[in-house]
Computed example of a mutant assay.
Amino acid sequence: MAIQAVVFDFGGVLIDWNRDYLYQQLIPDESERRWFLDNVCKMEWVVQQDGGQTIEAGTAELIALHPGHEALIRAFYARWPEMVAGVLDEGVALMERLERADVPLFGLTNWSAETFPYAWERFDVLRRFREVVVSGRVGLVKPDPRIFALMFDEIEKHLPGVQPSELVFIDDNLHNAQAATALGWHGIHHTDASSTEAQLRALKLAF
């Protein structure tokens, strides 16, 4: 079947978000910084907020576990914008080529409902998708199949009768791409724009 739509993850594909952008200022020593980000403000904790837990609750919970790091923990969301460097130009250029070719585009992102508005307001590329599903708003995170089901429902409103095999999902997280593939979509693990473009063209997408 021909590809009918492409779904983009945002962070790491279109938006340059990295905890190091903030914490290299706060913890100059690389080994100390890596320990902190691997053991305190680790991604498993970030995903809790991405899944709908409030920043206030998540911060309090982590401080209770690591009271000696309270200032560094509070900085995570207090200075969260400093983790966002801007757009990833090559990823945006790829998205724009698909857009010009009239390929229906959708967004599926793991993102806190409280921080997502910052990016939504500042990066117009995010407002150019037909529909966007934000994990923090729906209380589910990738790779949970249920969030893909919600995305599919939104796509089907625009493309009645669309089949999973007619959808592509692009994500910089391998597990998320694999989850899409397991559901019958074409999951692409995004490592760089040229590789992703080659995989899209292998699926006979003309853009």
Results as ranks from 00 to 15, higher is better:
Arg97Phe: 02
Leu150Arg: 12
Phe106Glu: 06
Val84Thr: 15
Arg74Met: 07
Val138Ser: 02
Ala78Pro: 01
Asp144Gly: 03
Ile55Ser: 07
Gly139Glu: 05
Glu70Gln: 15
Pro67Ser: 04
Trp80Cys: 03
Gly51Val: 02
Arg127Ala: 14
Lys142Pro: 09
Val141Ile: 11
Val141Lys: 00
Ile55Gln: 11
Ala101Trp: 12
Val138Glu: 03
Arg127Ser: 14
Ala101Tyr: 13
Val92Asn: 11
Leu105Val: 05
Met151Leu: 15
Ala57Gln: 09
Lys142Gln: 09
Phe76Trp: 08
Arg137Glu: 15
Val46Lys: 00
Asp144Met: 01
Gly68Asp: 13
Leu72Met: 06
His69Ala: 12
Glu61Leu: 03
Ala119Leu: 14
Glu156Asp: 12
Phe152Lys: 06
Leu105Lys: 05
Glu56Phe: 03
Glu61Phe: 00
Glu70Ala: 15
Gly107Lys: 02
Phe152Gln: 06
Glu96Ile: 02
Met83Asn: 14
Ala85Ile: 03
His158Asp: 13
Ala101Ile: 09
Lys142Phe: 10
Pro81Cys: 08
Ala71Thr: 12
Val87Glu: 15
Asp144Ile: 00
Met95Ile: 08
Val132Leu: 13
Met151Lys: 05
Arg79Cys: 06
Leu72Cys: 07
Gly136Lys: 02
Ile63Thr: 06
Arg146Asp: 11
Ala78His: 11
Leu88His: 11
Ala113Glu: 08
Glu96Cys: 01
Ile73Trp: 07
Val47Asp: 03
Glu99Met: 10
Lys157Trp: 02
Asp153Asn: 07
Val125Ile: 15
Val87Asp: 09
Ala101Ser: 14
Trp80Ser: 03
Phe123Arg: 06
Leu65Gly: 04
Gly68Asn: 13
Gly52Phe: 03
Glu156Gly: 06
Phe152Asn: 01
Glu56Pro: 00
Ala149Thr: 09
Gln48Lys: 14
Ala113Trp: 01
Leu94Ser: 11
Gln49Pro: 00
Val47Tyr: 04
Ala64Asp: 13
Val133Glu: 06
Thr109Asp: 13
Gly136Asn: 02
Gly52Asp: 03
Glu114Trp: 05
Arg79Asp: 10
Val47Cys: 00
Val84Met: 10
Asp50Asn: 07
Trp111Asp: 10
Leu62Ala: 04
Glu82Gly: 08
Asp153Pro: 00
Leu94Ala: 10
Leu94Gly: 10
Trp120Gln: 14
Pro143Cys: 07
Gly107Ala: 15
Gly58His: 03
Tyr118Arg: 00
Asp89Tyr: 04
Leu98His: 09
Arg122Glu: 11
Val103Thr: 14
Pro143Glu: 09
Ile55Pro: 06
Arg127Asn: 15
Glu154His: 13
Leu159Gln: 05
Ile55Leu: 15
Ala119Pro: 05
His69Ser: 12
Leu98Met: 15
Arg137Asn: 08
Val84Gln: 12
Glu99Ile: 00
Trp45Pro: 07
Ala85Asp: 13
Met95Asn: 05
Asp144Leu: 04
Ala71Cys: 04
Glu70Phe: 07
Ser112Thr: 01
Leu150Gln: 10
Gln53Asn: 05
Ile155Thr: 10
Val46Arg: 00
Trp111Lys: 08
Ile155Pro: 12
Gln53Asp: 11
Tyr118Ser: 01
Gln53Cys: 02
Arg128Thr: 08
Val103Glu: 08
Ala93His: 10
Asp50His: 01
Gln49Gly: 00
Asn110Asp: 15
Val84Glu: 12
Ala93Arg: 14
